[in-house]
Design a protein around this nucleic acid. Structure first.
Length: 495
RNA sequence: GCGGGAAUAGCUCAGCGGUAGAGCGCCAGCCUUCCAAGCUGGGGGUCGCGGGUUCGAAUCCCGUUUCCCGCUCCA
């Protein structure tokens, strides 16, 4: 495949109306991006199929849409107020950066004056045996002074209510997950659920990232698709504790989902967090990495959050957040498996994986081979000649008719070859072309055959289909039926 | 926040002290019976922003903002 670099994609995204830099006319900001007319369709399609596949089609799942602003105590309970704040110091000499709270636990490099400047590595927390000095300089290079600790708060602080008082301070949510945890009992009771069950949610989250960038990969405002899947850890699944077995099931389900919608399997790999990497709430976390242009990076994470969150919220709120196990006659706090995906990262992966540069008749063709369900525009209706009013009128009618079910576009501003290339570049899977044969030629006294050309994006094959068949043909093409199977029933059009 | 690079038309870039260009794209017309065809015409840039040097700055200097590449963190 032709792996595009990020610049090519940024350029295409802007030129074709997928993604614009936020506030561009004011100089822009790299930490926020706007989705243009095609981008918003693509993004909505991703969210729609995710919601359909994971929430609507599963008997063990329900949905939720919690507010972005929540009670400030939520973030104390979740640990974000304490753990999302890392005081950092930098070495003025070697430019190394350290977390201030970990400095004392690090071995340090020392040029000892008592031994004529000999170099020693001193274990954490100990003074030099020769001169008795304790560490004051950079532990890494032993020479540089450290800057004063700088506070990084990864949460956006804001004020609820018109008066800026401390009591009204809260945060824009850094993850959608907490909205599910605090509604655990509401959902459980109102839907009369039995374990195991999951709650899915799609929504915006905000993090004051230290380093945003790599296009939409890491931005300060982003959208998450999260599931909190609750299990009874005392149950056994496949002979293993339920949380551990279900965790593995979700990892595979998520991986398969990306493959289903067009991400090549070998562009993904799993990454197991080691203990140092694990978040404060997690027993085990596995990331699905994607081969992004800047290297393997996290596409989504699937964490076993244990009973940490429910217990924390129970403790801070004073409300019992337990589940009554009818068989064992006991109250338990469920464990939770959290498959957490970034909509924007998913979109970027789908975009990257769809991008192809091909050579057609000696010319370069750029094509986005989107899965048909993700493609922003499903059908482009094109007149072969725009001088013929009958052709143009028929094309307009067809577009309106097809638009009742699918996203469509009409374009007559160039020759047919160029029109096809434009649609290729935005990933439109099918074009419908109306020509003279469709409508007939009055001057030559020829009747129309009522057929139009359907052209498929990837193979560039064309078939002649009666207008009367269009609805059923496209219903099959947009469903599970392969192009080759549909095409076999109709004559090829010459190209 | 630190180090390095960059910022000129929608996109890719040239111009590097004398007042802004190319290719592609876009728009209109002509032409054209299925894969970026041709011809003609057109719109579009206070050269990121602010200051300084100079008779004169896109060009030199300072500051600033934004972007890109590394260091750290996550979806």
């Amino acid at each position: 495949m032709t792996a595009p670099n990020m610049d090519v994609l940024v350029s295409l995204s802007k030129r074709r109306g997928f993604i614009f830099q936020s506030s561009e006319i004011y100089g822009g900001t790299g930490s926020c991006w706007d989705y243009g007319p095609l981008g918003v369709e693509l993004k909505q399609n991703i969210k729609r199929v995710w919601w359909r596949d994971f929430v609507q089609q599963r008997a063990d799942m329900v949905g939720l849409d919690a507010s972005i602003l929540m009670h400030a105590t939520v973030w104390k309970a979740s640990g974000h107020v304490d753990n999302f704040t890392d005081p950092m110091v930098d070495c003025r000499e070697c430019k190394h950066r350290f977390r201030a709270d970990q400095l004392d636990e690090m071995a340090w490099l020392h040029f000892c004056p008592a031994t004529k400047g000999n170099k020693f590595t001193i274990p954490a927390g100990e003074p030099c045996k020769h001169c008795g000095a304790t560490r004051t300089l950079c532990p890494h290079c032993g020479k540089g002074e450290l800057t004063a600790p700088r506070q990084f708060n990864l949460m956006f602080k804001t004020f609820m209510g018109p008066v800026e008082e401390d009591a009204a301070v809260t945060y824009l949510r850094p993850e959608t997950a907490q909205g599910i945890f605090v509604n655990f009992d509401n959902v459980l009771q109102s839907m009369r659920l039995k374990l195991p069950f999951g709650v899915g949610q799609i929504g915006k989250a905000f993090r004051n990232e230290i380093t945003p960038g790599n296009f939409i990969f890491r931005s300060r405002e982003f959208e998450q698709m999260e599931i909190e899947y609750f299990v009874n850890p005392n149950d056994r699944v496949d002979g293993r504790p339920a949380d551990e077995a279900v965790h593995d099931q979700w990892i595979e389900a998520c991986r398969a989902w990306f493959v289903r919608y067009g991400v090549a399997a070998d562009n993904m790999k799993l990454h197991e967090h080691d203990t140092a990497e694990l978040a404060h709430y997690s027993k085990r976390t596995v990331d699905i990495l994607y081969r992004f242009p800047m290297g393997w990076s996290e596409l989504m994470g699937i964490a076993n959050r244990t009973d940490f969150d429910l217990k924390q919220h129970s403790k801070f709120s004073g409300k019992s957040l337990t589940y009554f196990d009818e068989e064992r006659k006991e109250h338990i706090v469920p464990f939770v498996i959290e498959p957490s995906a970034g909509v924007d990262r998913a979109l970027l992966a789908f975009l990257l994986d769809a991008y192809r540069e091909e050579e057609v008749r000696g010319e370069k063709r750029v094509v986005l081979r989107f899965h048909r369900e993700l493609a922003p525009i499903k059908i482009a209706v094109l007149p072969l000649l725009k001088k013929r009013p009958e052709i143009v009128a028929t094309a307009h009618d067809l577009r309106a008719r097809l638009a009742r079910q699918w996203t469509t576009v009409y374009d007559d501003t160039a020759a047919i070859g160029r029109l096809y290339r434009r649609q290729d570049e935005v990933g439109t899977p099918y074009c419908v072309t109306v020509d003279v044969k469709t409508v007939g030629d009055r001057e030559k006294n020829e009747a129309g055959d009522g057929r139009v050309t359907i052209r498929e994006r990837d193979s560039m094959e064309q078939i002649r289909v009666p207008i009367a068949d269009l609805d059923t043909v496209f219903a099959r093409l947009m469903g599970e039926t392969a192009w080759s199977e549909v095409a076999a029933a109709y004559p090829r059009a010459e190209s």
